[in-house]
Amino acid sequence: MDAMSVAVAIDRVEKRFASLRALAGVSLQIAEGEFFGLLGPNGAGKTTLISCLAGLVRPDAGALSVMGHDVVTDYREARRRLGVVPQELVFDPFFSVRETLRIQSGYFGIRKNDDWIDEILANLDLTSKAEVNMRRLSGGMKRRVLVAQALVHKPPVIVLDEPTAGVDVELRQGLWQFVRRLNQDGHTVILTTHYLEEAEALCGRIAMLKQGHVVALDTTRNLLAGVAGQTLQLRLAGSQPLPPALGARATESDGNWIFHLAGLDEIEPLLAALREGNCVIDDLRLTQSDLEDVFLGVMQNSGSAHEGGR
């Protein structure tokens, strides 16, 4: 990645809250035009990292920059280039949607912004609510206004911290279409979400965070390749045990036996072994391995490696 194309550089960032190590030396480089996913369980440090990038939290160590501008020493330029959709559903109850967006434009030094505001409103299906007071919007609508607020200054880097929490299916599709288009137009997008299918479908590259550490960082394709294959779930009638030959390969969960298969050709021998053991199958399901399997695998395997950090 040459220096010109780096949209976001995060270099050994550390942050403590009292005795809690929220970020334990995080380094990431995100290139211009990327659609980047930031995943991790609750409390992993995703929001803290985003807050450091936005200047809402001051890191104890390390440096961050947006489009080459340090977020501390050159904060004006950095912030002009960054749009953040905060995770918390916040709003200013004094204003209408349009007033909110006009004021937010003004904060970023933009005087006449109504054309772009109208376009954002249309894309987020908010046009009919433009003159409505923020207090009178539903939760999902307020979240859309948060997205709109992050976009008023057309930032080259857009960070969305769980933008789809509480948003209905239809709008979620619309939102992703809009964000995808922004990404195609050259905006760098950083996304955190707990909906892993969303991340899988949208993100070109993914970092996984756990207890303030980056525990996985790769293209979505490579991450998925690590779990290539299928998962077979089956339930035996009358809670029979598995034949000993198969028992070692399976894990049990809620009376279901789960097998990870490298390919579909492994099914036939498996079924044959069951038949030989006189097992009667009650239920059987075959699913393609997905990002969720990767995520769970990474989180398990990175287990206690970093626990000492606390």
């Binding site: 936005a54 200047g55 004006r76 918390e88 916040v90 200013d92 937010q104 904060y107 030094g109």
Partner: peptide
């Protein structure tokens, strides 16, 4: 008020000194 509701972020995110 803006601290309690969290809307203070709207004035902390922009390039205002």
């Amino acid at each position: 008020q803006s601290k309690v509701t969290g809307s203070v972020v709207f004035v902390l995110l922009p390039p205002i000194s």
